[in-house]
Amino acid sequence: MMFRFESPIYLWLLLLIPILVIVNIYHARKKKKRYKAFGTPELLKQLSPGVSRYRSIVKFSLIEIALALAIIILARPQTISPTSPEKREGIEAIIAIDISNSMLAQDVAPSRLDKSKLMIENLITRFTDDRIGLIVFAGDAFVQLPITSDYVSAKMFLDDIDPSLIETQGTDIGRALDLAMHSFAQDTKAGKAIILITDGEDHEGNAEEMARKAAGMGIKVFILGVGSPAGSPIPLGDGEYLKDNAGNTVMSRLNEDMCRKIAAAGNGTYIHVDNSDAAERQLKAEIGKMQKGQFGTLTSTAFSEQFQAVAIILIILLIIEAIILEKKNSRLQNLQLFKRKK
């Protein structure tokens, strides 16, 4: 079993200990000089019989030790348990999110994009040994997060997703699928899936071709269509809605027919995303059917906090310091525990 500090930077505060000792010695000497101005040590001892010579030293020492222990607690002492290798088996999934302006439509609450992000976050939470990557696309596409098992980073990158990430507007699903196909790791036989979330307003027309190419590589293409076929206006954030050149409000409609065709070409499934969690459950079930592959071994390390014992000692020292008085206790002056017998 090994030992470590989680926050060792706080240990630099231990330099306060010798500094306080030097300051205390300096003030003690100044105090001694002031006392000498009043008379001889014998006279002062007679004038102040209750003053203890050593109690202040003991109290200061206890405070110093307590301060050192408090600093150690801040540094979080931990013991490290022996590591245990575990086999990791899962799938690889590249999640491609449409971040075109039409995804700001609110026919799905709170918006198409926010609903998509929430669904992905819940999906990531359920992953255990799988690898995931994030791609954002509109008129262009780029990798937001390379394929990884770091779910914490995945959620952080997910929070930052916004239409402002891509200046080129539009919805180039084919480009997103092409980028996703080339974003998988090459060293595994695990099942591979592209989970593409969009409202289906494709302006390029090569999405089905790319989906068939992905299927030929053994990659399943799941299309999640978010929104309503009835359509919804696109808010601009200032209370206004997007309008066309003629001044008419633009209605963004979910193109379910195109989404189904892309999913069929990619040997996958089309799933409609609405205000319920049905799409999330269906996607989870489909992913559960996929072949899992081994990614090697995961070495897990357990850290156990050890500050409790130090805290108990600290509390005991502070109690003792509070009990000890600067002056001698008159009731105990006649108690001579260490007096020699004649």
Results as ranks from 00 to 15, higher is better:
M1F: 08
M1N: 04
M2H: 12
F3K: 07
S7G: 00
I9F: 14
L16K: 01
L16Y: 01
I25Q: 09
I25C: 04
Y26P: 00
R34Y: 02
A37N: 10
A37R: 12
F38G: 04
F38V: 13
F38E: 04
E42Y: 04
L43Q: 10
L44A: 12
Q46L: 14
L47F: 13
L47H: 07
S48Q: 11
S52G: 01
I57C: 04
I57K: 08
S61N: 11
I63H: 09
E64C: 14
E64M: 15
P85Q: 11
K87A: 15
K87H: 11
R88P: 01
A96C: 05
D98V: 09
M103F: 04
A105D: 03
Q106R: 15
V108E: 09
S111W: 06
R112G: 11
S116Y: 01
K117L: 14
I120L: 13
I120M: 12
N122E: 15
I124M: 08
I124E: 03
T125H: 11
T128Q: 14
T128I: 12
D130M: 05
G133Q: 01
I135E: 02
V136H: 05
F137D: 02
G139P: 01
Q144L: 08
T148R: 09
Y151G: 06
V152C: 00
S153M: 12
M156G: 08
F157C: 10
L158P: 05
L158C: 07
D159V: 14
L165F: 09
E167V: 14
I173R: 07
R175C: 02
L177C: 06
D178R: 12
M181I: 09
F184V: 13
F184D: 10
D187I: 02
A193W: 06
I194A: 12
D199K: 04
A207R: 04
A211W: 08
K213W: 01
A214H: 08
M217P: 04
I219E: 02
F222A: 11
I223H: 01
G225E: 01
G225H: 06
G227A: 01
P229N: 10
G239M: 06
E240L: 03
K243S: 05
D244V: 03
A246Q: 12
G247P: 01
T249R: 07
T249F: 01
S252N: 02
E256K: 10
M258Q: 14
R260I: 12
I262C: 07
A263S: 09
A263K: 05
N267T: 10
N267H: 13
Y270D: 04
Y270R: 09
D274T: 05
N275R: 05
N275Y: 05
D277E: 15
R281Q: 15
L283Q: 08
K284V: 10
K289E: 13
M290A: 12
G293M: 06
F295Q: 08
T297G: 03
T299P: 00
A302E: 15
F307W: 15
F307P: 00
A309T: 14
A311F: 15
I316G: 06
I316D: 05
L325A: 09
K328E: 09
R331P: 01
R331K: 15
L335G: 03
K339H: 11
K341C: 01
